[in-house]
Structure formats: structure tokens, C-alpha cells
Write a protein that binds this DNA or RNA. Sequence first.
DNA 1: CTCAATTAATTAACATGTTAAACATTATTG
DNA 2: CAATAATGTTTAACATGTTAATTAATTGAG
Lengths: 154, 154
Amino acid sequence: MNTAEQRKTTEIPLETRRSLPIALLRAREAVMAGFRPVLARHGVTEQQWRVLRVLSEVGKPLDASNLASHASILPPSLTRILKVLGERKLVTVLRDRGDGRRVLVEITDAGEELIREVAPESREIYADLERRFGEDKIALLLAMLDDLTVKLSR
Amino acid sequence: MNTAEQRKTTEIPLETRRSLPIALLRAREAVMAGFRPVLARHGVTEQQWRVLRVLSEVGKPLDASNLASHASILPPSLTRILKVLGERKLVTVLRDRGDGRRVLVEITDAGEELIREVAPESREIYADLERRFGEDKIALLLAMLDDLTVKLSR
DNA sequence: CTCAATTAATTAACATGTTAAACATTATTG
DNA sequence: CAATAATGTTTAACATGTTAATTAATTGAG
């Protein structure tokens, strides 16, 4: 058994509880804890999944810059992610004729197939989340987060 | 100049805007964009800063597990962070007599000094954030995030 | 008291975040 | 049109995230 002194160390800090960055981090962690296992079962990371989803939703080739910004991934990370997604034939990457600096990324049929496989499970997790937290509260939270993001981006 | 076709690729995706994980990620990024430069000027990363703050707030040695959970950092990351903080003499790490598996971490005077240097700038950034977004909305956002985190952690 | 579980921390391996620098290509200016 | 500036992507270097395996120490059952 532990001593009383050791148990004391479990007390909760003070300021840390009121820190917005940490609150956002913890909330994100709590939400992703539901999704990660689903993605892992299908052999993709969270970021790889975001890249595939953006490409599928946009429905046409995207250059790396736009893809990175839509998927909220930094360009250096995207470069590495595209290498593995390309090797796994989930996307195709080719240079833009007309602007040789750009690279155009397109989702493959296999990529779309993967999305069709994962999407139902993903929606189920999200539905459970809505059930547990409340659909209205999620909408409010999303609006506030969006508002915050916009207001700080200037 | 760009052609019209190229401009079209800048359109905003659909579902991605309503995704809670992404909204949390973007909000966190927007908030941290204010803090990171301050921390960088003082030569510490966001995570190193969290570790120092928790130790300072608790005011006594913490074992690695509690420290990791209070700072929202995974144990493997904490091991690496403690190595550099130890080398920089900002914390001291020593084995717990009484339980040789544990490690006890304590902030040094130099660590406290660093906190005293950074804290004013940090508070200023936070004050600006409150001014821009509204103190009341931040309080509401924090409460919702906490609520969400708790409800999903079961 | 001994040995199989349990626990705390670390290591390993791979993926991503972060900033700065390098590269190649295109756009601009004189 | 040539030299230069600006742009899109990649590379580099280091820090952290993530999961699984490992190691060392402690606990507990028998």
C-alpha cells in the first residue's frame, strides 16, 4: 500500500486547469481517443485520413499548398505523408504542367474505397459523441471555436 | 497572374469545417501562435514550459507519472524532455528512496527564475486574447471544453 | 519466503510538428 | 532579355506524439 505522503502528489494543479491551450489539447485528445482505434484498424494515421478526406471532398486534384492548408497540416509534414500515401497507391502525385513548381495530388480509386470503408465507423463514433455531449452543445462549441480561430488570425 | 481554374482550387471543403477534432486543432494553433514566439525567445518549447509550470505550481517534487498527467504529456515524451531540462539545470531528477521504480522531479532555482522571466509576457498574451475574444466567452469555452473532456473520459 | 503478476519508467521505432535553409521554377524589374 | 525577387516544394535537424516492447522494482498469492 502507498503512504499518505505519496497520495498527496496526486493533487490537481491550479492555473493549469484554466489554461485555454491545455483545455483545447485535452479536449482534442478525448475526442481523438474515439477515432484513433478505428483509423488504426484500417492502417491510416489521423493526418493521412485528413489528407484523403480533403481530396475526396474536393473531388479534384489539389496542389500541395492548398491541400496542406485545407487539411491543417504543415507543408513539410505533407511531403512525408504524400510519400507513404503514394507508395500505398492511395493518391497519385504529379507535377503541374504550366507551373513546374507545383505538385498536383489526386485520390485514387483505392483511396476512395478506403474512405468508403472507414466512413461508416467514423460517423458512428461521431454520432456517439453527439449523443454523449449533446448535438446542440457541439454546434455551439464548433461556432465558438471557429469564432476564436478567426478572431486570432488577424 | 493566375488563371481562373487555378483560383478555383482555393475553395473551402465541406465536411471538414464541421469536424470537431479539426476545429479544436485549428483553435489551438491560433492560440499557440501567440505564445510560441514568447517561449522561443526564452529557449523553451511549449511542452518544456508546461513541465516547468506544473512543477512550480505544485511546489514540491513530483514523480514522472503524475507530472506527465498534469502536464498532458505522454511518459515517453516526458523522459526525453526531462533529459534536456536536467542538462540545462532547470530541474533535478532523482530516484525515489522507498520506491526505486519512481523518479522524483523538482524544479531548480534557475527553473523558477525562468518562470519569473516568462510569466509576465505570457500573461500579457493571455490578456490580449481575453480582450480580443471576450473574457466571458473564454470562461464559457473553458467550461464546455472541460465538460466535453470529462464526458468522453468514461 | 519465493515466484509469478503488477507497476513505473525507459527504450525503440515510426509518424508528425516546427523552424530554417536549400532548390527549382516562375514572375518582375530595369 | 538578363539579373533579381518571389513562390512552391522539399530537405534538414531537432522535438514531440504514439504504440509496443523492455527493464527494474515492488507487490501479492500461496
